[in-house]
Design a protein around this nucleic acid. Structure first.
Lengths: 232, 232
DNA sequence: ACAATAGTGTCTGTGAGACAGTATCGA
DNA sequence: TCGATACTGTCTCACAGACACTATTGT
């Protein structure tokens, strides 16, 4: 078999029997001191009335990142939020209807930006407490439980050497708020003094503070844009 | 539009315009104290006579991991070696012929196992010094330079918190050999005493040593299978 | 004896962890 | 003054980095 023939052969095979490609979206936020994820309740079979990750098929003239951004906009009404590719799932029986390869994306946003009612499928979109969901045995569509577990782990790991925690907060925030975010993502309490030491090089003061609370006010900070070297 | 119609619509669209899905393989090994990668010289257009990553299309009845394992076996003649998914590349113009989404896999092996002449495409398969390649401006096919850079970074990171370094050695090895592997992967020298301290909990002695060298012999070790907790 | 590499002992500084203490608001 | 939360000072211990030293082979 010549190389040319070999190529045409494999090319043809791929034309006639291609899997479908979709992106599944893990949109995380923090609300009421809990890490939550955007899920939709399916209104069709298979897995009718079961919770599932929002997802879209990847268009033939659309990159994966573009498909992810589109999906986030359509399902959660969000633009310009942080996202990164998570993992690609390719088991044969993921979807009983047909072969679908799913590229999952991890996306993080502050609860201020997230407006669930802004998406197109308002009614079926829910914000679910992730850690509670994963401890429970509530059924999830397809292999989405495994995917969510994987995403949850990625967050827990990445918090420790990157700045993803900041994505859960608005531009300006107090240190107690930031510490709460870290504690929620890591799932354990942190010491105030130590936390502030480690985080100090990553942030800078603003000129205003909280007010109105029945206790000492708290300075607002923002992320430093310069010299982003040291990490938590 | 009803939910049913909406599903059929997106389903049909995905049927008629699906991208192809391939896996690209980054098979790394260490030879002559250098980190090397398996590349093939393309014998067809596009990028004829240019170095590229070995890859295969994903069969419709094949998982991604299976496709990766098959590709590694076909191109490098290897079975049962370490591999993990790296990243999925989905730009529109990756391949000028058609839309191909590529799931890249990182694979590591000892040079003893790697026998380039065992693959099916013997003639065109080459072992290339990665760091030298990336410093050079030797052209690579498609977006493979970017993919190799990404893989190289993954190795550099993962060496520090996992045991992937061991994959480059046979089951039994001396500590000087292991230290060389770490130094090559990290791209910097390490202190003997410190290295041994850190690595100690991960390994166990065997009952034999090197011999025949004109210097003090060196104990053989193997990886500990129990209590794999502490990392480098 | 010497070259060459394997392997060990130990000092020092940095930084995480732990905890106690002080500061500043509203009521 | 008190409750509540923000913020700071400092001790300790583990450990990474650095370097000097000893050990064991073949020639």
């Amino acid at each position: 078999m010549t190389a040319e023939q070999e190529f045409l052969n494999s090319y043809d095979k791929s034309i006639y029997e291609k899997p479908s490609v979709a992106v599944d979206l893990l949109v995380f936020t923090i609300e009421d001191d809990r890490l939550k994820i955007v899920l939709v309740e399916r209104d069709e079979h298979p897995f009718k009335n079961t919770l599932s990750l929002p997802g879209v098929f990847v268009g033939i003239n659309e990159t994966l990142d573009e498909a992810a951004a589109r999906g986030i906009a359509e399902e959660a009404g969000l633009r310009d939020i942080y996202f990164e590719q998570l993992y690609t799932w390719g088991d044969l029986d993921r979807d009983p209807r047909m072969r679908i390869i799913s590229v999952s994306y991890l996306s993080l946003t502050s609860s201020e930006k997230l407006d669930i009612t802004a998406g197109s499928r308002t009614a079926s979109v829910k914000l679910i407490d992730v850690d509670k969901l994963l401890r429970s045995d509530i059924p999830l569509a397809f292999d989405h439980r495994k995917i969510i577990e994987y995403g949850r782990e990625r967050i827990k790991n990445k918090v420790q050497y990157s700045r993803i925690a900041f994505e859960f907060l608005p531009e300006e925030f107090t240190l107690p708020k930031l510490q709460r975010v870290y504690e929620i993502l890591l799932g354990k309490p942190l010491y105030k003094a130590n936390f502030r030491r480690k985080i100090a090089p990553l942030i800078e003061e603003t000129d205003h503070m909280t007010s109105g609370d029945a206790h000492r006010p708290s300075k607002f900070y923002r992320q430093r844009t310069d010299s982003p070297d040291i990490e938590l």
